[in-house]
């Protein structure tokens, strides 16, 4: 089914087409939202919002970019709005996930000690990476996630973020530099603690 056929089906309120839309794009939306929000419940809720928005504003899709790019743009915009509105809620989630990870590490104690050490260390490293990515400025974080986690081309990122190619290149360069600095500091703090 082409993008245009999908849009026409949505405008005609064709339930089969809507099911096809969700089936085709829900993974993309949930993954992108999860990388930006760091919470699967919120990512699923946001996926619903994005799908409803697609259905309600399908008429405004002009086909200047691909449907996938348009959906990425909706996802990124909604995720960033969500982060802005829910900064306090996010703090609570991070606090909860910190303790949940603590519980997981207790469960893994039944495994081999070396394996436990590895899992624990991986969890620690994952937290360090998440924290470093989350502390990046909004634009840098978005460009970094779209490039590194979603593996999108620079051209696609320019369309999603509505920026020029040099701006995206510079954003990604700065994101890497900032991440590198933050990770060096965090890893040295972590190895000092050990």
């Amino acid at each position: 089914m082409t993008d245009q056929e999908l849009i026409t089906g949505i405008l005609n309120n064709d339930k089969t087409v809507i099911q096809f839309l969700v089936s085709k794009y829900h993974k993309q939306v949930i993954k992108t939202a999860f990388h930006l929000l760091q919470n699967m419940d919120d990512a699923e809720d946001l996926a619903q919002d994005v799908c409803v928005e697609i259905i309600e504003s399908a008429g405004s899709f002009k086909g200047a970019s691909s449907l996938s790019t348009w959906i990425y743009r909706l996802t990124v915009n909604k995720s960033l709005n969500f982060i802005r509105k829910n900064k306090r809620k996010q703090l609570v989630h991070q606090f909860e996930s910190f303790f949940r990870k603590g519980d997981n590490s207790i469960e893994t104690r039944v495994t081999e000690p070396s394996e436990y050490d590895k899992t624990f260390e991986n969890n620690e490293r994952r937290q360090i990476l998440e924290k470093a990515v989350n502390s990046l400025p909004e634009n840098q974080k978005t460009a970094f996630i779209l490039s590194k986690y979603e593996e999108l081309s620079y051209r696609e990122i320019t369309e999603i973020m509505n920026l020029s190619l040099p701006s995206v290149e510079s954003l990604l360069q700065r994101a890497k530099q900032n991440l590198q600095k933050k990770l060096i500091v965090q890893f040295s703090e972590y190895s000092n603690k050990k």
């Binding site: 829900h26 949930i30 990388h35 699923e44 996926a47 619903q48 409803v52 986690y149």
Partner: peptide, 18 residues
């Protein structure tokens, strides 16, 4: 992180929600 997958039945939950 690239290979993260949605939870089981996420698609059904989304469809019901919509």
């Amino acid at each position: 992180q690239k290979s993260i997958e949605p939870r089981p039945f996420a698609e059904t939950r989304i469809l019901q929600g919509i």
